[in-house]
């Protein structure tokens, strides 16, 4: 597998996204909403009810739970991007000439995955920096220390978010093999973030605690699922399969 060949495919797709405003808006709006919205909400709560009414452990729990939204964003955004990347090629019928170039199926697939991963992770990581700066600024007076960066957010951003991205890309490839329009792919792909929302809810009701250890365990589990999905998506993205079975 030649990474340079895969990167050519990715770079071309990244260039195509520049012409798709919906992708750009999606990539910016959600992470930016999380990055600015939650610090603004905390600042509002602290000023409205007063710092004394919110004990530090409660505030810490609240902020911790917000950071999980970066995982949810990581599972949501690639669907929008990867659907265009693969279903878009199906619609424009440009996969056949692409497959006729000296590029292997694996290189094309990796290129498509990179094209979805790179902008998503860039958006997630950039917005997370903004989020941490703003949240620290809002809470440092109340907590007496800078809450971010910490081990939990490191696991979230460096392990869970990339894995959630990969998971979403692979699901997106499997969906793209069976549908013929971008909207349907995105709608079906919308279910990808449900397991992560479920995890968030069960942590909120106290069934599990999303501390560093649990986050690492979730990352391990997700890595296994992602590996399994990789094998499936690799099989779905074989040239003969694409040319003779894809709808």
């Amino acid at each position: 597998m030649r990474l340079s060949q895969a990167w050519l495919v990715a770079r071309h797709d990244l260039n195509l996204y520049r012409h798709r405003r919906t992708i750009l808006y999606t990539l910016v709006a959600f992470p930016l909403g999380v990055a600015i919205g939650f610090p603004v909400l905390v600042r509002y709560l602290l000023s409205r009810v007063g710092p004394a009414s919110i004990p530090s452990p409660v505030l810490v729990g609240l902020i911790d739970s917000f950071s999980f939204f970066f995982v949810i964003a990581s599972a949501t955004l690639p669907i929008a991007v990867a659907s265009y990347s693969i279903v878009g090629e199906k619609i424009e019928k440009s996969l056949e000439p692409l497959l006729a170039t000296p590029t292997t199926d694996g290189e094309i697939l990796l290129g498509k995955a990179l094209a979805a991963l790179v902008p998503t992770l860039a958006a997630i990581w950039a917005s997370s920096v903004l989020y941490m700066v703003l949240m620290d600024r809002v809470t440092v007076g109340h907590l007496g220390y800078l809450f971010y960066p910490n081990a939990e957010i490191a696991v979230v951003l460096l392990a869970l978010a990339p894995l959630a991205c990969l998971f979403a890309v692979e699901v997106s490839i499997l969906i793209s093999a069976r549908v013929a329009d971008v909207r349907t792919a995105q709608q079906i792909g919308g279910i990808v973030f449900l397991p992560f929302v479920l995890l968030y809810v069960v942590s909120e009701v106290g069934i599990v605690t999303l501390d560093t250890l649990h986050l690492l365990a979730v990352s391990g589990g997700l890595a296994l699922v992602t590996l399994g999905l990789f094998a499936l998506s690799r099989r779905a993205f074989e040239r003969e399969e694409i040319l003779t079975r894809w709808k």
Partner: peptide, 20 residues
């Protein structure tokens, strides 16, 4: 792979990237 380097293919559907 070498074969695909040596040949050119115009498929039935032109399959160009319309926005570029």
């Amino acid at each position: 792979l070498e074969l695909r380097r040596r040949i050119g293919l115009l498929p039935e559907n032109v399959g160009l990237y319309e926005s570029t």
